[in-house]
Amino acid sequence: MDFWRVPLDADTIKVSLGIVHILEDRCKGCGYCIEYCPKQALELSTKFNQKGYHPPVVVKPEECVNCHYCEIICPEFAIFSVESPPITEPGRAGTHPNSAIKVK
């Protein structure tokens, strides 16, 4: 999903932020969430869950924009995101609470 254009007012838009939760033992490792995450925030982990599948792991937590797509594409009810309250400092729109990295 690399073809999205960056809006001209991107700097002023408050981008929602999310925290991804993974219910590892429900996962069957289809990889749909990983493939279709618009921010490529997920990767297949190397560990096994109870059923012997590799669940996803959040590799770029600061990238999650709480779009819920992983949640709605997941056939297993194994992943979801919740909105995380943005720390709004003057001049710093959409800052992730878990990092100081500004969301693009």
């Binding site: 033992d25 429900r26 069957k28 490792g29 289809c30 749909y32 059923k51 599948y53 709605i72 594409i73 997941c74 056939p75 297993e76 009810f77």
Partner: peptide, 13 residues
Amino acid sequence: IPHIWCPGCGIGT
């Protein structure tokens, strides 16, 4: 849960 549908099956979605 987990349901019976195979890995990659779209029924769950």
